[in-house]
Nucleic acid binder design. Sequence first.
DNA 1: TATTGTTATACTCTATAACTATA
DNA 2: TATAGTTATAGAGTATAACAATA
Lengths: 138, 138
Amino acid sequence: MPNEPAHELRLTIMRLARQLRSQKAEGDITDGQRSVLFSLEDAGAQSLSALSARERVTPPSMNRTVGALVALGLVTRETASDDARRVTIGITDDGIRFVRETRRRRDEWFSSRLSTLTPEERAILAKAAPILKGLADK
Amino acid sequence: MPNEPAHELRLTIMRLARQLRSQKAEGDITDGQRSVLFSLEDAGAQSLSALSARERVTPPSMNRTVGALVALGLVTRETASDDARRVTIGITDDGIRFVRETRRRRDEWFSSRLSTLTPEERAILAKAAPILKGLADK
DNA sequence: TATTGTTATACTCTATAACTATA
DNA sequence: TATAGTTATAGAGTATAACAATA
């Protein structure tokens, strides 16, 4: 692939992602809060320090984010059973519902766009998808 | 395209975009500052209010962002010749260099990833690119 | 009197430093 | 003495409200 198409494809990817990101979830939480919630739903309960490392944020900052999510009832904060210094952050049923609803909305929006394509175009995207995934995994 | 692949493709796009965004430019300015700079390079000099509307930010906020860019020598702020209330924000030569360097780095990073693909895979992406662009333009 | 930009002030998010409790 | 988390405090960035200058 020559360089100019690479440039176009890159811009297109950034633009599509921007549009997808702007499809807000209902409860309107911040980006950081949403990221933590997705992380917890995806990787399970974690200690505060593990979570802050994963999200590349300092522990005090993560503490605040977690506090906000606890206040919203989307996350739990409990002292670990084996080490009383440690705290385990988990996602609540409401949190899980929130994550799934957000995913559903984003998928729905994207699917509705895809549905405007011709079968041939969709077939090309179906072939391109795993290649793009490979790029992201590198 | 069935629904599951749509989900995968969406995630892949968001992930690639995140990786592209994290390819920092040199001078390390904020996201908002970079966005304004790209906008000025792209659409030319603009008034403060036009710029704040375009970036969906309030005038006071844009004023602060512009002030920071002026201090960095990347942008100019001058009173308009026809209306003394108005201010025209323009990009400097250094600003243009900054934008182009950032673009160059991002393209380079993305191209280097593409270069790991087989010619067949690149051909598929070349066909997929305009389709994705069409989706983003909708 | 309406419009353009700026200043004053407050709120949110994140960071570093200091502190508490536990190991 | 080291570690996990929290609290205190400060620095960006953005917002609304009030203000100044110009049309």
